[in-house]
Design a protein around this nucleic acid. Structure first.
Lengths: 216, 216
DNA sequence: GTCTATACGAAGATAGAC
DNA sequence: GTCTATCTTCGTATAGAC
């Protein structure tokens, strides 16, 4: 990309790259600490220790603890909103919902910290997220709900309130990240692995596809 | 009740009653504050303000913040473990599961703070609850799972991993308490009311009973 | 840009009067 | 038993040397 200012000046580009690496390094540590300790429970010292940096550096890059937290939420929100692509009017209902469920479950498996971070934020009343929930998320839910209502009207799936169906799917899939501790203790396994996620996917698929008369 | 020591001595009895009232007053305030702020986010000053007492009184009755939090968890745990009674070998599978789902959803409606408190605790890794989760809860899940496996073996419901079915039901019902903020914003309503919980119950019942081939 | 040392405030806990 | 005043710790944030 020859118009990129950062690439035109190797010294500056290297510095910018260093900067991006530091930012990512801090954000990764913050994701982990905020996820399990919550906003109030997480200390800048703990995040700094997880990132392997003195805590003054965190303030140099992000200013305040809340700014770091907000930047993290902002970054993770993009991933969050990019999983419903499979639900389109021309899709087959069963394949679309199965794809969506598998994507959500994979998100819980690969990014449990991100899911826990959102859970903590919503539990707190979503002070930094309510605008996004009432904006982008609501709009996306309305759009996809319209698709589902179309399928229902065509008799291609059982009648259900689409928005509540989304709440149910979110809950069932995210619980494998947010309530991992509880699931692990009840199942008496040291950690959730392939087996547990396969059983989870199978259960959710049975309830959703079976409940909506999309398979035997 | 004539053998009751508290009733035999009116002055002492009245004092004990006063004490119980204070304890309940503080626990109710603590439930509300801990639920939305989490353990670290909640301050003794905030709980004291919610209870209408000076914060020194909280320390007089409970000693430390952690002891207050532990007492609260202990108290709520009893309610938590008392909802699966409907699932018994001689029950009809559809009626038993419907009764269980309605009980769990009613719990989310009437005691959202308690649900949020548990959610916060589990998100933190359940430092004060892991013994109960690996003990009483696991035992109860195993017992009820055996009942479900019996029904499956008799061909009375579709095959499903019973423990994961419980995880799914817990997630779908508790989400109306824990993620109330998100649901409220997506639905664009000022608060969750009769309508929203009816839609929620209908959705969960459809997925579970339909998914397990317990109704059309 | 990086890090040590520190200022400032908030919160848990207690002392001691009433 | 109750409450005000205070002690102490801890965490955020910054100052200032390198």
């Amino acid at each position: 990309m020859p118009g990129d200012a950062a690439m035109d000046q190797p010294p500056l580009g290297r510095r910018a790259q260093q900067r991006q690496q530091r930012l990512a390094q801090i954000l990764a540590a913050a994701e982990q600490v905020f996820a399990t300790a919550g906003f109030e429970g997480a200390s800048m010292a703990a995040i700094a220790a997880a990132a392997g940096l003195p805590k003054a550096n965190l303030h140099y890059y992000f200013g305040t603890k809340e700014a770091l937290y907000a930047a993290l939420l902002e970054e993770l929100l993009r991933l969050w909103l990019s999983a419903t692509d499979a639900i389109r009017p021309d899709s087959a209902p069963d394949a679309a919902l199965e794809s969506y469920i598998r994507a959500k479950m994979e998100w819980s498996r690969s990014r449990p910290h991100a899911s826990k971070l959102f859970a903590n934020e919503v539990l707190r009343g979503a002070p930094l997220l309510s605008a996004h929930l009432a904006g982008g998320l609501r709009a996306q839910v309305e759009e996809k709900s319209a698709v589902l209502r179309g399928w229902i009207a065509e008799g291609r799936m059982a009648p259900v309130e689409p928005r509540h169906l989304f709440f149910a799917i979110w809950a069932m899939t995210q619980t494998y990240a947010d309530f991992e501790t509880q699931i692990r203790l009840v199942l008496d396994v040291p950690a959730l692995g392939e087996r547990e996620f396969e059983d989870g996917v199978a259960t959710v698929l049975r309830l959703v596809l079976g409940g909506l008369a999309l398979r035997a």
